[in-house]
């Protein structure tokens, strides 16, 4: 099972990314859990200095933008 982590303190962009990630999981059929990380110390621990960001299985894939559902689906497959 994949782990998708949405990194962001909770602004609308971060929430939109979480929404898109959940939609991507639902549409792709990939078995994955979506986790939201809001602790700025944990976020910087990923090497991320700008949010929102998206990590898949602990590897940061995108920083500073809200990818579309389709873009996230590609990251999952």
């Amino acid at each position: 099972m994949k782990l998708i982590q949405v990194l962001g303190p909770g602004c609308p962009k971060c929430e939109k990314l979480k929404h898109n990630a959940e939609a991507a999981v639902a549409q792709s059929g990939v078995e994955a859990a979506v986790e939201k990380i809001t602790d700025i110390n944990v976020i910087t621990g990923f090497g991320v200095m700008m949010t929102p960001a998206l990590a898949v299985d602990g590897e940061v894939k995108l920083v500073g933008k809200v990818p579309s559902v389709e873009e996230i689906k590609k990251l999952l497959t």
């Binding site: 990923f46 090497g47 991320v48 960001a53 940061v60 894939k61 920083v63 500073g64 933008k65």
Partner: peptide, 20 residues
């Protein structure tokens, strides 16, 4: 200031932050 070693080590979060 950001970590040059993270660039050399190809650390995903550091690379992606630098791209942005």
């Amino acid at each position: 200031m950001f970590c040059l070693a993270g660039i050399g080590g190809r650390v995903g979060g550091i690379l992606e932050t630098t791209k942005a």
